[in-house]
Design a protein around this nucleic acid. Structure first.
Lengths: 348, 348
DNA sequence: GTGAAAGCGCTAACAA
DNA sequence: TTGTTAGCGCTTTCAC
């Protein structure tokens, strides 16, 4: 049975109100009184019950972070970014994964959230417009990461541009058969992000006058193993691609593994570009489209804190920059594919 | 202003007690009544306030997870493992980082924890014996990951053996100058783990009759970049090692990067072995000592739930197995170093 | 099967 | 500067 505020009050010979004030550093407490209270609390090992304090004061000193998955590098980095700024404000982080439709529905409805968090960061979870509206209608301050939102502040990168940048890079190197490894459209997680990157890929191809080949778009499950499987399928084709755009560095690693196993020269026989700029990408010398992952989390947290402080702000929309990191896994195709002057011209 | 239990009671024409019972699926509620309550709650969008519910019932439905860092692969995987089992029980996860002495002290004292969590998992945080005792003395159920604990259940791998296994592997291949990349001893995080791996390394060397060379033990900060720096320093020596044992795969990646940059053949000129079996290690073909990272988290969570259920159990101590994954980055040294028959003999 | 009422342990007005 | 007291919104006896 832990000591309660009443125990401290008794021991210090003051009222509970004074204890409360003294312990929280509020003004209007005589120094000598405060000292006595502090001492009593210390010897009793008193810690205020967060539920009781929160119930009485109306807040929780906690922000929720909802992610579809915890394991992948991207989410762990975003989480770290959030945690850093949230902790600096002496708030806690409640972590929750929502990876199915039911979870999304509950999240939007604010179920389980009341009395648990003062604010919410939703990372890469494909809420419907109706759900976003529902979330915004909740009194709960919330910010969305990785998706546009009407009534909610959001922080994101331009993923269409990400797809375009990566694809253009390969096109400029002279590739015309460029594969895309991404996420299955009907995936239960249903990220919004892959779809946008795919659009950028299509736009860049169209710009170069190249008709997209549906056979070159495969699912890589955003994992190393998935990327390897996808690359295997692609390279087994009679008309394999000369370059692969993987929507994450982790999938790109899988591609590189397969390339090495097959004795393919990179980038001679196969160029590979990823997205993220994963910790280990420099070590692989992987060309990639870098996004400020940690900063995404930090920015989202700062935005949320601002909303929590201000009560209500005009929904901000923060776009963070991405940039091409041209490293060693992309280069011109060694054997020129069938001449395609049209494609070449379009590049200028 | 969200609907309260009273609002639901009014709308359903029953008392708050009945609403509480009906919503929580307790017995002794007439089916028709329950239905009416459910409907009222649904139309009002009622969600019970977690603080109030917790305050009245005495629990929080939350478990805390304390880690020194969030970003590194190891911690994200452990966290994922914990989250999976905790979520299955419909509990939430409160994430906290403690990365300094003050934080450790607060953690042990249970500060900030009362009324926030029903149980705590402490991952790779170097508590003193006194602090562990303090933590155990708290009424709060807790389990420790990555360190021994007297009075607390713990789950760990045998990190001495990890060091020994990796080192022996290199010795058996014929290496005699084996470097160790780990963590600086005076690091503020002060993991217990690196020290144990280092001991295993020393034991294996001793077993082979090889005197450890302090110059071959360097800090790699458990990051890719740190591993690269460490490898650079090692390879710049006049008497470079022929093999490197990195205490994490991420540091090993850094080593491989440096080796490649310098045109060193792996494993011909340099063997590299890591620890973890990181997601991308198979892609690198990295030899490593694998540990069941996800399982570590899951096991810890299960242990914690058991303690929370049982009230008190005999402090379990669960050791999870590790195993050598002999892949492509380790092999015999190409140029035999100075003959060392003694070392060779000792290997049998 | 249902309701009334007493807390759970705090914070915040309001008094003094 | 300090104390008294009324909640915060729920759960949980204990009656009925």
């Amino acid at each position: 049975m832990p000591a309660s505020i009443g125990d401290v009050a008794d021991r210090a010979g003051v009222s509970v109100a004074t204890v409360s004030r003294a312990l929280r550093g509020l003004p209007n407490v005589a120094p000598s009184t405060r000292e006595r209270v502090l001492e009593a609390a210390a010897t009793l090992g008193y810690v205020a019950d967060a539920r009781a304090a929160g119930l009485a004061s109306g807040h929780t000193r906690t922000v929720g972070v909802a992610v579809p998955l915890i394991g992948p590098w991207f989410f762990s980095q975003v989480l770290a970014g959030v945690e850093a700024v949230v902790t600096a404000r002496d708030l806690d982080v409640l972590l929750m994964t929502v990876d199915d439709a039911a979870g999304r529905e509950r999240l939007a409805a604010g179920a389980r959230l009341r009395g648990r968090v003062d604010g919410l960061i939703v990372v890469d979870i494909a809420l419907t417009e109706a759900q976003k509206a529902e979330l915004a209608a909740n009194d709960l301050p919330a910010v969305v990461v990785g998706a546009e939102a009407e009534a909610l502040p959001c922080v994101l990168v331009d993923n269409v541009e990400v797809g375009r940048t990566a694809t253009s890079h390969l096109l400029e190197l002279g590739h015309t058969r460029i594969a895309l490894i991404g996420h299955a459209r009907e995936d239960p997680l249903h990220f919004p992000v892959p779809e946008e990157r795919r659009r950028g890929y299509h736009e860049a191809l169209a710009c170069a006058g190249i008709a997209p080949d549906p056979a070159l778009e495969v699912d890589g499950n955003f994992s190393v193993a998935g990327g390897a499987e996808a690359a295997t399928a692609l390279l087994d084709r009679v008309d394999p691609p000369t370059a692969i755009l993987a929507m994450s560095d982790e999938m790109a690693f899988g591609c590189l593994r397969v390339a090495r196993q097959r004795g393919l020269a990179v980038p001679g026989d196969l160029s590979v570009i990823g997205v993220d700029d994963h910790d280990v990408s420099p070590a692989w010398d992987l060309t990639t489209v870098s996004q400020p992952v940690h900063r995404v989390g930090g920015q989202a947290a700062e935005l949320l804190l601002a909303v929590m402080d201000a009560g209500a702000t005009s929904p901000a929309r923060i776009a963070l920059p991405t940039s091409l990191r041209h490293r060693g896994t992309t280069g011109p195709p060694m054997v020129p594919t069938e001449p395609s002057p049209l494609g070449q011209d379009a590049l200028r």
